[in-house]
Nucleic acid binder design. Structure first.
Length: 435
DNA sequence: AATCCACTGGAAACCTAGGGCC
DNA sequence: GGCCCTAGGTTTCCAGTGGATT
């Protein structure tokens, strides 16, 4: 034990140097704080709560701005379900951003609550058909959303069963759990076997597959002529009511944007920003989603310019950015070879801008083959490329028209871009660079 | 009105991957 | 473990088409 550190003399010395050392540390720390710039402290932001400008944010749980008439009409079609009876099937049409999905979700929630207070159970399944394109996938999703294995006694595995078995399990779930099931099929036109799905769902009740339950379908599409694609038997068994959602007016857009103004700090949004954003959006699209996007971008531009207020001068740049992001969003969902094909077609279109020359499938394919050899990937067949172009046409990136060159020259297809081809080209490249 | 031909798009089949059921 | 199921991407094949020209 007689350790040196135990001797009182040395302990005092140690303690003294320790105190000096600690003081020195404190001094160092405080001077460091003065020297190191805190990059977060200097950021000026006009936002108070940006999440209010996310499209899914629900501003008001009790209503949807500008859609009172449409909600009333939907309620009319569905009201039978509040008393445990079979509701009418509905098809909702309207351009993007006209509040179709929001309204369908809103009304089905209200329906569930009202039915519950009447002592009836309603189950709702919201399906985004752009994410489950096949019939089986759709039925799986519906089943999984409505199911509770403890109550129904069945499970819905992700794969492995035949389509017929998935249907059977869905009927069991409906019988065991609900008086009424509501299936919302958003972007229903993306569904490849739409006739088969609608036919089986709409006939489930009459064919006594679900004797203890009933089923209502709400289809949502932005293609006004969607129902003409359905075959006659589907149409007659669906027997749907159609609801058309008009584009928002400038006044309604103003109201929508005003309701989200709290996303910004008080007094940061100049008076003319909202009317200008609403006017631009109403003139070109009547699309609330885009209007909200543009509104958010004006704030981001203000931040980037280190401005403490959002000025109406930022609106046109915000519009451009919204358009660019929209193209990028669409293209980024496409498979790799699809972007190569689009890039080829867009490059040709840019090249030929201003001339009378047109872009054809054949030329696009040749350029695409060259691109593939540069990228060291093997090209898909020309037939497959026609399908990829078909998909791009469906997504409204481009449109095609068939022409004939006459006797001994055959026919060909002309590809034209709906937006400026250089924007498509830029979008493809930006996706490529981000991986 | 008949002709001609490059191109289109439907159909079938193939392949791989993933998974449940008995 | 063997048999069953489906999705989704792809290739191969080929009948049909459009419209300027003859």
């Amino acid at each position: 034990m007689g350790d040196r550190a135990d001797s009182p003399h040395i302990s005092v010395l140690w303690a003294g140097s320790l105190v000096r050392y600690q003081n020195r540390l404190v001094w160092l720390e405080s001077s460091l704080k003065q020297m190191v710039e805190n990059y977060f402290e200097d950021i000026t932001t006009v936002f108070r709560d940006r999440s209010i400008l996310e499209i899914d944010y629900v501003v008001d749980q009790t209503r949807i701005i500008g859609r009172d008439e449409e909600l009333k009409a939907l309620a009319q079609s569905l009201h039978a379900a509040t008393k445990g009876n079979t509701p009418s099937n509905c098809l909702i049409y309207g351009k993007p951003g006209t509040g179709k999905s929001l309204s369908a979700k809103f009304i089905s929630r209200q329906l569930t609550e009202t039915a519950e207070s009447n002592g009836h159970s309603v189950g709702t399944a919201y399906i985004d058909c752009s994410e489950c394109k096949s019939e089986t996938d759709t039925i799986i999703s519906i089943g999984q959303k409505l199911n509770d294995p403890d109550l129904s006694g069945v499970t819905i595995p992700d794969t492995g069963l035949s389509t017929a078995k998935y249907y059977k399990r869905l009927w069991t779930i409906l019988n065991e759990r609900y008086d009424t099931g509501i299936v919302i099929l958003d972007e229903i036109d993306r569904l490849s076997d739409v006739d088969s799905v609608l036919m089986k769902l709409s006939r489930a009740g009459e064919s006594r597959k679900i004797p203890d339950s009933s089923l209502g379908i709400i289809g949502i599409s932005n293609k006004p002529r969607f129902h003409t694609q359905l075959n006659e038997r589907t149409k007659s068994s669906l027997n749907e009511r159609r609801h058309v959602f008009p584009a928002y007016t400038a006044d309604q857009l103003i109201e929508i944007l005003e309701a989200r103004k709290d996303a910004f700090k008080p007094e940061t949004v100049n008076e003319d920003v909202i009317p200008r954003t609403a006017a631009v959006s109403a003139r070109e699209y009547g699309d609330a989603r885009k209007a909200v996007d543009i509104f958010r971008y004006t704030g981001e531009i203000a931040n980037r310019n280190e401005s403490e207020v959002v000025k109406s001068a930022y609106v046109s740049e915000a519009v451009e950015r919204a358009e660019r992001d929209e193209i990028i969003e669409v293209i980024s969902t496409l498979p790799y070879h699809s972007t190569l094909v689009l890039q080829s077609a867009a490059a040709l279109a840019v090249d030929k801008q201003g001339s009378n020359d047109v872009v054809t499938t054949r030329e696009t394919y040749s350029l695409y083959e060259q691109k593939c050899s540069m990228e060291e990937t093997s090209p898909v067949s020309e037939r497959r490329v026609r399908d990829l172009l078909d998909e791009a046409e469906f997504l409204e990136i481009l449109q095609r028209t068939k022409r004939s060159a006459g006797k001994s020259h055959g026919s060909y297809t002309v590809i034209e871009f709906i937006d400026q081809p250089d924007k498509v080209l830029q979008a493809c490249k930006s996706i490529e660079s981000t991986g």
